[in-house]
Amino acid sequence: MIEIAGVSKVFDNGTVALEGISATIAAGEFLALLGPSGCGKSTLLRLLAGLETPTAGAITWAQGRPKAGEIGFVFQDATLLPWASALENVALPLKLLGRPRAPAREAAAAALAQVGLSEFLTAKPAALSGGMKMRVSIARALVAKPKILLMDEPFAALDEFTRQSLQEDLRNLWRRTGLTVVFVTHSTYEAAFLASRVLVMSPRPGKIAADFASTVTGEADRRDAPSYTAFVAEMSRRLRGVMPAREVLA
């Protein structure tokens, strides 16, 4: 679906965020970008979204560059408009695309139902918990029926219980819809639970250190499966290999 070829990104201040990234993203897969901070995973995501352009190399889409509204993006912070209701926030992409009002509101209501927030259509963000705001953000990313969903550490700021609950809902959503998802995370547990494929990245400059399919099996009680624990251990091993050597305190 997407071909990333020899992509590098150097920022204006001289930081080399990514160097020589090459990979192919297949339609329908759940791809996790896993790595420590500074490895350029968020930058890679932004390049895919078209929010930045590569300094070298190219990103090619098999079916042509996505048009407005065909990429759904979920940020680390829910970033909702504080003065608008949940329904209005979710309907925003459709409004920007110029869709008529009534169908847009219906689609927004449906998206909110998909994330389990039908009771909160008129609530404003101040009245919602962190987890609920994130669900609204996800609904907003899905409302325009995007071709791909890009997520930048969306659950990092939430507590453990909310995070696990949202991870389950996200995985179920993916299995139901078959949407292509690229998910940035620094958590091996999260990558193990959600992804069908993992790219491990190393920092400074950002490079791909490892690329392998998930070996986790089972859906029900996924976190208790032995394959889950084994996969977590495997990724942790790979991650330790790419972490910068720690200085011993003298």
């Binding site: 078209g50 912070d77 925003l92």
Partner: peptide, 13 residues
């Protein structure tokens, strides 16, 4: 917020 500006950009505002 920069993220909202990005969101608007992504949706072709």
């Amino acid at each position: 917020p920069a993220a909202l500006l990005d969101l608007f950009k992504l949706n072709g505002a």
